[in-house]
């Protein structure tokens, strides 16, 4: 009975972290898929989402408003970054990597200067404890899982059912042809970059009541997102989603039954295996 309790806890933890990771990784995958650039500063958008959510909930006293304001603010920052940094270097892949590394440090150090080195908490907007036979669990974490799932669904609808989604898919398949058909690719790039940043910012904002806002929190988010994107297949949104959930569950189960360090090793080994065996990732190249 204890073992089944542990397994249940492991799956629950894995599901929650997998869904949050899916949001973050989806943002990275979207940017890579549509724009063909690697955004090294992606984790900092996660951190900014968390920090700005803290700021707004402290200033407005409402986490709900903060949850809206944080992604909007981060989206605006991403638009500015696209306009001021990425577009002038014409989205050249190598230059973009270097530029986004710079952006990473600038954002991180600005937050350190303005917000400080502290880990600051936010009260969960809903607080209840779910009592299972073996242990209790945070009700807010379940809310986070549901919200993340809803947002993932909404993103999928946006990409598959709207004009912007169509433009994005067209740009991803062939930017030149898309441009010839009148798709404003530059604006699509900007929109994808902002959307990717907003997705990860929401994820960052959602976890603030669980794990606080801290100026170095972006690094883990970036590493795990990269893992998900590589395992899932570069640019494949479906693959990213599946990989994020897989990483979350593997992490949950292995770290409850063995050790969290082993869980990280397993996830990294998975990345290595995928790169050796199926270099395009589990879901291959180009699929959405």
């Amino acid at each position: 009975m204890i073992a089944s309790g542990h397994l249940f806890l492991a799956l629950l933890e894995g599901l929650v972290s997998g869904l949050v990771l899916a949001l973050t990784a989806l943002g990275l995958s979207l940017v890579f898929g549509v724009m063909r650039i690697v955004n090294v500063a992606h984790g900092e958008f996660f951190m900014l989402g968390a920090v700005i959510a803290w700021f707004f909930s402290a200033a407005l006293g409402s986490f709900g408003l903060a949850l809206l304001a944080a992604p909007l603010a981060v989206g605006a920052i991403a638009l500015a970054a696209d306009r001021l940094i990425l577009r002038p270097i014409r989205y050249a892949p190598e230059a973009t990597i270097v530029a986004t590394i710079g952006l990473l440090y600038i954002l991180q150090q600005l937050v350190l200067m303005v917000y400080g080195p502290y880990a600051r908490p936010v009260d969960a907007p809903v607080y209840f404890r779910v009592e299972f036979p073996w242990f209790g669990y945070s009700g807010y974490k379940l809310v986070v899982a549901i919200l993340a799932a809803l947002l993932l669904g909404a993103t999928w609808l946006l990409i598959s059912r709207t004009r912007l989604g169509l433009y994005m898919r067209a740009t991803q398949q062939d930017p030149d042809v898309a441009r010839a058909f009148g798709v404003p690719t530059e604006r699509v790039y900007a929109a994808s970059f902002a959307l990717g940043a907003m997705l990860t910012a929401v994820a960052g904002a959602l976890v603030v009541p669980i794990q606080q806002a801290h100026y170095l929190m972006g690094l883990d988010a970036l590493l795990l997102s990269f893992m998900a994107v590589i395992i899932g297949g570069l640019g494949s949104l479906r693959g990213t989603l599946a990989a994020a959930l897989l990483i979350g569950l593997v992490d949950g189960v292995v770290s409850v039954f063995f050790s969290p360090t082993l869980a990280k090793i397993v996830a990294s080994a998975l990345v290595a295996l995928v790169l050796v065996g199926r270099s395009g990732g589990l879901f291959g190249e180009g699929a959405t």
Partner: peptide
């Protein structure tokens, strides 16, 4: 617990 850990529920069992 690894110093970079952000979630602890998994350790309590």
């Amino acid at each position: 617990i690894p110093p970079t850990e952000t979630s602890f529920t998994r350790y309590f069992p």
